[in-house]
Design a protein around this nucleic acid. Structure first.
Lengths: 224, 224
DNA sequence: CGGTGTGTTGAGGCACATCAAGCCAGGTGG
DNA sequence: CCACCTGGCTTGATGTGCCTCAACACACCG
């Protein structure tokens, strides 16, 4: 969404192309960092293919994944002068580099753009905040159900009853939802036993009972 | 901080004054709503005195307090077209009404202002996000210690060893930190027994051992 | 074949929620 | 003046959801 608006409004801007890339594109291998926490915010990145994770690492070694970015998402936007967390590819990924300087320059030239971006930035972060508020109070089951729902919503092209890709490993899911690997695994097994989902292989899942999954994501004890 | 920048840069702008207020000011009684979730974002409010709470109420009746706003804070900023949560006074409070329309108008007139506000908005929300990420993984003790530290940091005018006001009730603290009233109370008692703080009365506390409180806020098991 | 990385499953413990009783200050009415 | 109520807070007893630790299954790879 942000991506399309940027494309619409900035498509004609002559980007200063990152020398280390062709066409302002970068190819990423799994585990390749896109940027580190504390680095100066020089670029935004539009994900063209693959999946990227944004996360913080705390002093005690624990890791909190802040978000997963899928194709059409933009990462790096809304960080301020320096990036607020680490960012790296999960799978092979292609990203488009959007130099921050050009974007800021065109804001100065087109004030109405600044206002629009302000709106987008606050909107996006507010959504993320809603998610974290929600997760804060939820049980493991509610968190997993919410997560699976949001995964399904990200890929509306995957038909009902078809296999949804689940490109991140259990540890990533755990670090995103604030659960351990064990609990993630156990909860998925439970959902399978309840015939709510199927887990045919490691990298995907199938929603068997959309309605029940939705109920579980809202409040566990409405479903028995 | 946002307030001062707004004052500095916009002090000379002729505000359209809310007819229901004098001088663009509003006086609030305890429990009086400032705005509701879903209302159109027509104003921002600068807190001049008193304390205000912003919160969401979920379908199951649980309440999540998103933030407490103290004098010099601005609420309503960064919500998009409609407010994202409820907002009401905890104590008697005076707020200055800042019509959104005027602010947006002056953004259009002064592009550099838009860029600055974008920065501020992203910065503020990112801070809030940091807080929620942090709290997400913390124990009750770490949460309470973090909360008390941030309360103390909000009032640098209160000297070391002096009574810090704690204007919100235990239920508010619990709904902010994701704990029950009982756990809040128990944890405060524990901190008192450890001689880290004193709780002379309901509406305040005294930091007796700043260093230990800081350690407790970071990771519980570094202090025994 | 063993080694490694990822996921599943079981047993036990602990932190926090829940339920419930009691304390204290302030208000109201006899 | 005391009797009583009410609301906010504290404290105790009990239950439970998730973490921790640990064993095992399985795929992949040299």
């Amino acid at each position: 969404m942000l991506a399309t608006i940027l494309a619409d409004t900035l498509g004609d801007v002559p980007w200063t192309v990152d020398p280390a890339s062709r066409n302002g594109l970068r190819l990423l291998r799994p585990q390749t960092p896109l940027f580190h926490e504390g680095d100066r915010t020089e670029n935004f990145y539009e994900i063209l293919s693959g999946v990227v994770r944004a996360f913080k690492v705390f002093a005690d070694g624990r890791r909190q994944i802040v978000s997963f970015a899928f194709p059409n998402d933009i990462v790096g936007f809304g960080h301020g002068d320096t990036y607020r967390f680490e960012c790296e590819a999960i799978s092979d990924a292609i990203v488009r580099v959007i130099p921050k300087a050009s974007l800021m320059r065109s804001i100065r030239e087109r004030p109405e753009l600044g206002e629009k971006l302000l709106q987008i930035a606050t909107g996006e972060v507010a959504n993320m905040q809603d998610l974290s508020i929600l997760l804060f109070r939820k049980t493991a089951m509610e968190r997993i159900a919410t997560f699976l729902m949001s995964m399904a919503r990200r890929r509306p092209d995957v038909g009902a009853g078809a296999r949804q890709p689940l490109p991140m490993c259990r540890a990533d899911i755990g670090d995103f939802l604030g659960l351990t690997i064990s609990t993630v695994s156990r909860t998925l097994t439970k959902l399978r036993d309840m015939n709510v989902i199927d887990v045919p292989d490691r990298g995907g899942f199938v929603v068997l009972d959309f309605h029940k999954l939705l109920l579980l994501s809202e409040s566990e004890d409405t479903v028995h």
